[in-house]
Nucleic acid binder design. Structure first.
Lengths: 210, 210
DNA sequence: GAAAGAATACCCCTTTTGGGGTATTCTGTT
DNA sequence: AACAGAATACCCCAAAAGGGGTATTCTTTC
């Protein structure tokens, strides 16, 4: 290993901050460049630091780590942001991810897990504590959780897929090499099965949106 | 540990199937109840099996594992589905998750990782290979890129919202207490701004779907 | 106080969609 | 061999959507 992976820590709790710093510097792959306990101090030092990874707590005394993430992603787009925080709310988790968090650990992970996660992050992964991963995956499922089958046939599903792109009957017929009338027939059947009467309602209902 | 965690494997490739079976049975926490190489055979045996975890390959010779996941989630809502497949496309990953996959491993993970993932899954986690986790997290971030404004006015956004519910012009006009012609005019403007020419395309574009 | 943009409303017209049928082939299952 | 379901294709017709205009009122901004 030529260079150590550099990390800056933003964490208000002194104890935890020192523990992480020690852990990083004790390993022979990471190097803790700097630690900060408030957002204000972090911003004051920001121009002078350019680590590979930012380690960020979300609940800071003078603001939210989410804003910090956004700031980092704006001015250091290549840096990685590892969130490490107590579990707060699902909304907090999703907001952090939407704003650019590249990984999300819950406080309380073992030292071994932490080091593994940081390496995974540096190698292009997206490490998450298992509770977080669960939330994330569940958010996908709620997309169409109640999605019954509606007993659509393969062909009907296929046509619905085209409908959902906004394609015209003519277009779909062309692609599937059948007459436009056939497409119309299929669509009538789809609408009947889904109990809707236009394209948008069908798409929303089948794909569980709205 | 009182009982072993029971697993059923659906995987067409004989070599891999046997390897997984051996791995599971060699551990002292898992027990491979049964293996299947096709969806057909799997469904034939389905009524007689009720494992804790289903291990599912997505690319099967006689169909897609995604349909299998949906089937399992319908009839064994408490069972867990661990996908293990080659990386196919992002779409495939998201479809699998949306349809109920509880974990997603890429083929090629080490035996150690596999066993850890299965334990994590059983304990309520959502284990993913790091490439998958990265895709998943990135999908959150791109969700945010929707914030393009397209310079729609407040009124236009409001009308687009109604459009996205599949409401008719007449209906929208009624709710907003303006003439249907006004609604039409607004919608023409919306389509122009978004460079689309029908409702579905407008909704997809504005809300960042598709 | 003029100019620009937004919201309102109407005209014209064509194309597309949706709803009601009927009928023929094809395929898989019993 | 019989049957059911699916996919194909066509008919008719009305309603809705989309695209082209123009015009008036009302804010907001310069």
């Amino acid at each position: 290993m030529s260079e150590k992976i550099s990390i800056v820590v933003l964490e208000d709790e002194k104890n935890y901050r020192d523990t992480i710093k020690l852990l990083l510097n004790f390993s022979n792959i990471f190097c803790c460049l700097q630690t900060y306990e408030t957002i204000k101090k972090f911003y004051r030092g920001f121009d002078d630091i350019d680590p590979d990874i930012f380690w960020i707590d979300l609940n800071l005394p003078d603001g939210s780590g989410i804003d910090v993430i956004r700031h980092i992603k704006k001015y250091r787009p290549d840096a990685l942001c590892m969130v490490c925080s107590f579990f707060d709310s699902e909304e907090m988790v999703f907001k952090a991810l939407q704003n650019g968090a590249d990984g999300y650990l819950l406080k309380g992970e073992s030292n071994k897990k932490i080091l593994e996660a940081l390496q995974d992050l540096y190698n292009g992964g997206a490490p998450m504590s298992s509770t977080i991963a669960k939330k994330v995956i569940m958010s996908f499922q709620s997309y169409n959780a109640i999605q019954e089958n509606f007993s659509l046939t393969i062909r009907e599903k296929e046509i619905l897929e085209h409908l959902s792109n906004g394609e015209q009957y003519k277009e779909i017929g062309g692609k599937l090499n059948v007459s436009i009338e056939t497409i119309k027939k299929h669509i009538k059947n789809i609408y009947n099965k889904l109990h809707v009467n236009n394209r948008t309602e069908a798409v929303n209902k089948y794909y569980g949106l709205k």
